[in-house]
Design a protein around this nucleic acid. Structure first.
Lengths: 151, 151
DNA sequence: CCGACAGGGTTCCGATATGGAACCCTCTCT
DNA sequence: AGAGAGGGTTCCATATCGGAACCCTGTCGG
């Protein structure tokens, strides 16, 4: 299996990673969630090379995660915004933040914390089944190969 | 910012990605959750080169996500198992699966579905705050820079 | 009219990382 | 002795990345 074949892979983990499993992509997405929309801002914040950033933005647009929009004409300037598909990545980002804050603490405490917009209280994410409300753990939930597929 | 500096970065997203933000790592972790423990099995399933697989396993062990354990002596053979820190990645994996199944459907339906171990019913993951039970969305929860830090 | 600057890129080159295949080492089995 | 199994390592060609320079459209100040 090569990296560029992942896009078509039967496994959803592989397909998902073909979009966001790259070194920089989730950092770009993070910035988008933080309201960063412009090339130069991203480039400065990330310290990524302009070349690679341009490439990632193109791919994210092609994958439907970002949308490129002119925010002015003359001179023509573009900004990047999350599409609905991109916004749907929020749970992944939040879960990742929680994992890192819990499992890779850094001295001086976390630089970013999850906070309720309404109450300003800190948030501790928990994954449940939308139907039953049961918590999702390795013990309660199984990722199983679908019946009519061969993996 | 270079890739190998991410490990120490103040941002939890960056720190998390320094561990799992690599092309292959989450696929290795996926296999571990599926009960795959041995080098050759992984290598065959992933189609990754042995070289890269050995490197990823070493890194995951160094990062405390996997633990290498001898399952026999004479000849000495090792297998890899998730540590608690590794098991804590489950919500990320589940959320990723759900995102891909929803946003990157593949013809013939998903090859892997999330299922309740108890009832065999399909699971639809939902992220809530452990305290209030409120759903976590871009509207309800903010990832804010911590007070006593400059990002 | 000229030079400087903004914003969003592209080009080029040397350094890393990845893909593919072969090889190695320690046992066991026949 | 020869053929695996299991878990690697080595070598080389190709792909991707990091760094820095350059380009293009248009604005602004003098």
């Amino acid at each position: 299996m090569k990296w560029n074949e992942l896009h078509e892979d039967a496994c959803p983990v592989a397909r998902g990673l073909s979009v966001i499993g790259d070194r920089w992509t989730m950092l770009v997405v993070r910035d988008c969630f933080m309201g960063i929309r412009r090339f130069d801002q991203m480039q400065q914040r990330l310290g990524i090379t302009r070349h690679v950033l341009a490439d990632r933005l193109r791919k994210l647009e092609a994958d439907g995660v970002l949308r490129r929009e002119a925010y002015q004409e003359r001179p023509l300037r573009y900004e990047y915004r999350l599409t609905d598909k991109g916004k749907a990545l929020y749970p992944i980002l939040v879960t990742l933040i929680d994992w890192a804050n819990t499992n890779m603490p850094v001295e001086g405490g976390p630089s970013v914390v999850l906070t309720s917009r309404a109450t300003q209280d800190p948030i501790r994410p928990k994954l449940i089944d939308a139907e039953t409300g049961e918590e999702i753990t390795t013990r309660s939930v199984l990722a199983v190969p679908n019946a009519d597929q061969s993996d």
